[in-house]
Design a protein around this nucleic acid. Structure first.
Lengths: 204, 204
DNA sequence: GTCTATATTGTGATAGAC
DNA sequence: GTCTATCACAATATAGAC
């Protein structure tokens, strides 16, 4: 992260909070300026336009996930062995930034045509990911498509945060502590689930 | 569904499409009127305000899920036995309305304080849901909290649709047919996963 | 770098003619 | 029920003083 002026940092921090909660169209430049306690025109001075400010926030949010994937791909241990660490990393990231999934998915849902370029920019090679996955999942008991396994793992990790308001209320009666505690429990539950799918003779 | 005038139907149809894709703040009344091919003031004539039009769309979207839950709760067979039918119902609903999850979750994320009242209005009794769940899950092999099981099942069913742009591009190389086909496969995969978690001696 | 003033356009909503 | 005309206001963005 490059050094930034204090004002620029305040803008980004406020823009993040508000874009995450209210979305791009639901947040005005004035809202952000007020939240940051600065003059509205400074947003244009530093970021030229609302679009460019949003873009900065969006890219930072996307970048939150990439290190997790990158770390997995650069490690030389198999998917199965790396699984618990990966799940823990993802859930820890979610506990810190629970609003990011919906924010990112809402933007990608509105502008799906952005996906191909984003993948390219983030340096993710789908083939390489699949190769890594397939390696650990080859001996699957139920002969799952590796893509179904990875999709299921991500679903189990991320959806409970995207659906926090619903889960919190219906399943945990509004008890935030109970909800958080349950999310932490999933660090061990999810690898168990995935391992059960993938293979029961990992030792072989 | 009550009989509606043709104009009213056109408004709702356009409002759904646009609210789903661009969100509430990202969609103007003019956008909706143009999409419906009618005069903008008719929106106010039929729905009084943008807020009330949005509310109509939001409630209809929420109502899409409720029948699935309601059907499960009113059935007298156990959760485990009902599982495959429930998963199939949910995934079929998602295939028909893949944009609803993000739309609903975005709104609830912006206004989580709405949850308690919504649950009440929809006639969902959390205790009754939990009782139903706990019944089928009691003999769990890994002694899972029933809430973790239900949360996992929902995650596995819904997240792959919420994350469609990402999954489509990274996992299926942009091949829409392959993606849809994979989603259909999950109708049988997900019950297998959940059953493996829950119990291996359901017969007892 | 930070402010005030202003240009321009878009927005939700209503009144009133037909 | 549907239209035109209009209101009051909020939005993004820029020019220019300090």
């Amino acid at each position: 992260m490059v050094l930034q002026t204090e004002t620029e940092e305040k803008i980004i921090a406020s823009a993040e909070r508000l874009f995450y909660q209210k979305g791009k169209a639901g947040t005005s430049m004035q809202d952000i300026a007020d939240d940051a306690g600065i003059n509205r025109t400074l947003l244009n001075y530093y970021f030229r336009s609302k679009d460019q400010l949003f873009e900065a926030v969006f890219r930072k949010a996307m970048g939150t996930f990439v290190p997790n994937v990158a770390a997995m791909m650069s490690s030389d241990i198999s998917f199965n062995d790396y699984l618990p660490a990966l799940v823990e990393k993802i859930i820890d990231t979610m506990l810190e930034h629970p609003q990011i999934p919906i924010f990112v998915l809402q933007e990608l849902s509105s502008n799906p045509e952005r996906m191909p370029q984003i993948i390219k920019e983030m340096g993710i090679d789908p083939d390489k990911v699949m190769e890594k996955m397939g390696k650990g999942i080859a001996s699957s008991k139920i002969d799952f498509d590796p893509r179904q396994v990875i999709l299921s793992m991500i679903s189990l990790c991320i959806f409970p945060f995207a659906a926090k308001p619903v889960a919190l209320d219906i399943l945990y009666g509004g008890d935030e502590e109970a909800y958080i505690s349950a999310m932490k429990d999933r660090k061990v539950l999810i690898p168990m689930i995935i391992n059960q799918i993938v293979s029961q003779n990992q030792s072989g």
